[in-house]
Design a protein around this nucleic acid. Structure first.
Lengths: 131, 131, 131, 131
DNA sequence: GTGGTCTAGACCACT
DNA sequence: GTGGTCTAGACCACA
């Protein structure tokens, strides 16, 4: 399914959340697909079950999955989630900081532009895959 | 100089690091300028001196400032000669994650593109200001 | 594991850094080995946990160890591929200073040469041991 | 005469001590030569007089210079200083650590050997100059 | 005055 | 349990 990178500064549960999100967004996991059980994923990732559970709880809170007691957890239908302008503003701020640093490191505006363009094209590529 | 936001998720020392970085990158602080002493900044921000020192040390690691024990800390001259491809790659990865997150949050490619364009234009604006 | 010498001019955290480095370089600690926890080492060395943490953080900066919050700290795998010429140049400079000092102290060139030869032979010895 | 590098981690007075030592060892300053006065050197280096004085005191303690009240400070005749085995052992230890690090960074024994040889030849070169 | 180190003890998030 | 952050307050060397 995916791998956990212990050396990554992100906490394990965050990595799981992000990875599952990505699988859903990219269409690898579709609405109503069953996710591995907490125990199962715990074994395959060799990660504490509590950690998996925390990740699933977070994903549920964010509306990506839902849980049916006794049956398992499933990918939620991707209803148009209300766009969270607050979060978007936060991420924009982070993007701003990062572009600023690129500038400081000596990148010209052109170089920065090409980097951003590259990221955008990556995004549209994988958008196609998910179709 | 700047303010600390205790409600912010970022730790205090991280906020200091980011704020000082910003002041340096935007040209408010120039090479060889003296930063406030650890104790001084500690008082103005009502933050423990150790926390300030931690921030300054991090900035030193990242090459933004240098320290002369007994004299103070100063903005490092930015010898931008060897463009640090390693660091650029790291930042690119962070940008990638952020654009991914925007997508998660339901932003269309067009919206993401407009956000990135906005950031780029800010950059050129402020580039002019710093002249 | 090792001892701290309070009489030593080196600060405590530096001694810890150097000692751990040595254990890693000499192969006593191998990649992925778990280091003692901050609190644990703090007790065995009767040193404040903050001091241990400072040492561990420094070791992490230098790439010798990595940290998983909540799990512990571990010896980093040594991907020696990109030989870091920058660091090598730094160390060379330090070696230069040291040989200069030997000269100051009245050592003849022959004596210095014999000392360096001795170090080299030690190195090959211990290279054999680590196999 | 020489320059002080504020960005250097060594304290200013240490840099002065080392530089003067080097000038003496290399024969630029000879026995009975007069050193600049504290005030004078203080001005040329734009360094606090106390710092110069501390450096001179240290040099005197180590037997490299001597002071005549009211006249100035002079280079001491280079009588065969008693070889300080203690200090030599310390420096040897530092050399050992540095070669160890070179090894860790991926240098082969041959490369380390060539580096050490290079340092030795530098030393003998400048030994010739001092003649 | 400056930065650097250290201790003691607290609180937090993550596993 | 783990590491991470922060405070309060102390002592040191250097300028």
């Amino acid at each position: 399914m995916f791998q956990i990178d212990l050396k990554n500064r992100k906490s394990i549960y965050e990595q799981i959340v992000d990875n599952v999100k990505e699988l859903i967004i990219t269409g690898v996991l579709n609405a109503e697909d069953k996710l591995p059980s907490v125990r199962e994923l715990s074994k395959t990732l060799t990660v504490n079950p509590n950690t998996i559970q925390k990740a699933y709880r977070e994903l549920e809170y964010q509306g990506y999955i839902y849980t049916v007691s006794g049956l398992g957890t499933f990918v939620a239908a991707h209803t148009g989630l209300p766009i969270d302008d607050n979060k978007i503003a936060q991420i924009k701020e982070r993007l701003r900081e990062n572009t600023r640093e690129l500038f400081y490191l000596g990148c010209s505006l052109e170089k920065i532009k090409s980097i951003l363009d590259e990221l955008l094209s990556e995004r549209s590529d994988w958008n196609d895959k998910s179709k």
